[in-house]
Write a protein that binds this DNA or RNA. Structure first.
Lengths: 293, 293
DNA sequence: TAAAAATACTCCATAGGTATTTTAT
DNA sequence: ATAAAATACCTATGGAGTATTTTTA
């Protein structure tokens, strides 16, 4: 029993005829005819009821067809999986990272990925969400990590992590004694915001507006340690993703949950809708899912 | 990609070596070596790490091995399932039965068949002979029981039973005293015929015509008991296969042999000429021959 | 150096093609 | 009469063998 014959037989069934099958397997009708005959001889049954033009499967044929299709399917799977493997042996992954939280979320995935696929080159850039989206859309990146919301028509994404935004205040700050605060409570205090281009800024501003005020901005920075330092120095208050804040504990500050509205830092990995995802990108998504999923 | 090579490769892995594999596939070491090489060339990857004595699978090899085993497994399944089919441990029998006499002729064959081959599914339909022949020819049935004569070019058949058609009359009927009658004797009496579509009707009509008359039709029915009841009620006379008439004895009727011409109810099992007869159909024919042959 | 695998070389079985016949519509 | 499948026949590829070389434990 050889695949060549199985393939011929399966095509005869699918194309409903020897001559048509011959075309799809790039052989002559004679060859197909003999292939099927040989299969029948080997198995000792007839597989096709030759009812004039067009063929009908016998019971045995039915059964062989099912199994045959499965065998061929295994074959194509082999090729597909090898392709995948090849991609991970010498591929490239072009990733975009956000300006905040990369280390917390992705550093160890980097480590695992490097170890697992040492020959995949990783090209990385850091930008704000807007710029990353642009780069995805023009095909300069395979994958980007950025905050939601995202353009659902042009991009697909996989959630990585959703963190509530907590309030960080100096230990002596009036709000430091509170269990929880709402955005309304923040009206009278100056804010320390993120640098230009951070997607978090508009989220914070929107939340303030929903409570009827526009915050006073005392300072802006792209460096998380600096922001925390400024809060400790009583320059103002700040809003930080809980996970990140917890990783930068500072003795002179307090972290307090915020609600009304509670806002969330939702980090996702995204890619262009319908784009071909190189094997390396799929592998990255998979690792991320395992780590954070 | 051919199974021959897959088989060789899989055995090399299982037997941990080319030479050992060669034995299990009944070939020489050289052949096995070349088979694996060819597979590797086709797939464009190396499958085995040749670590001196003994072999280790590469990542690609791992994957091909898994799929390869699955393919071979499908192959052995084919053989196993065909064996079951042959042994009637599975399969389907699509049968057509006539409108008259099925119970008498086939009920106990059904019982034996079921008991002997409990895993064969029987699909049955009931139709007049014309319709059954059509269904055979387009391949919707494997086997049909129907009256002769039959189209000898397109159908083959096996005789089941030939019964003379006897005359059934009411006990008080003038013909009731006769030992035998001929068709000429029936001219003056109204007939109770079978329903539309019964092959018996034209046979009876033809016999009448051969004696130069066309019978008056008093009633028609597809139910044998009803026909007998109507005869007893003196509505008319009827012609019945002897065996069936004997099984429905009615005290107010008499059964009388008819000759000149004697006509026969010849029930046969038939199938499409040259059609592939599934094992279940052959088994049915065999049982029928034993029972009625 | 002894085993196992790869390679060189030969042979012939057979896969696949062309041409033709048979079969079915 | 036409289209499809089976068959006959031929050719050349390549699968399988033997013999030999290479490799490595």
């Amino acid at each position: 029993m050889e695949l060549r014959n199985i393939r011929a037989f399966v095509e005869v069934v699918r194309q409903d005829g020897f001559s048509n099958a011959a075309k799809t397997v790039y052989a002559t009708q004679s060859t197909v005819s003999k292939a099927v005959k040989q299969l029948e001889d080997e198995l000792g049954v007839s597989l096709l009821d030759r009812i004039g033009h067009g063929v009908r499967l016998t019971q045995a044929g039915e059964l062989v067809f099912r199994r045959g299709v499965a065998m061929l399917e295994q074959g194509t799977q082999i090729f597909a999986e090898l392709e995948e493997l090849r991609g991970l042996e010498r591929g490239t992954l072009r990733m975009g990272f956000p300006l905040l939280g990369s280390n917390t979320l992705f550093a160890d995935i980097f480590a695992v990925f490097r170890q697992k696929y040492p020959n995949v080159e990783i090209q990385m850039v850091e930008h704000g969400g807007k710029r990353l989206e642009e780069m995805l859309l023009v095909g300069e990146l395979d994958l980007a990590a950025s905050l939601l919301p995202v353009d659902g028509n042009e991009l697909e994404w996989q959630q990585v992590r959703s963190e509530p935004m907590d309030l960080l205040v100096a230990a002596e700050h009036p709000l430091a004694v509170r269990e929880r605060v709402s955005f309304s409570d923040l009206k009278e205090y100056p804010f320390i915001l993120y640098a230009q281009g951070f997607a978090l800024n508009p989220m914070i501003m929107d939340a303030c507006k929903s409570r009827g005020f526009t915050p006073v901005v005392a300072a802006q920075s792209s460096q998380i340690e600096f922001i925390i330092g400024l809060v400790a120095a009583r320059l103002g208050i700040a809003l930080l993703p809980r996970m990140i804040a917890e990783q930068h504990q500072h003795p002179k500050t307090m972290l307090i949950p915020v609600d009304s509205p509670a806002i969330f830092w939702e980090m996702s990995l995204m890619w262009r809708n319908g784009a071909y995802l190189p094997p390396a990108a799929r592998a990255w998504l998979e690792l991320t899912k395992q780590r954070w999923g």
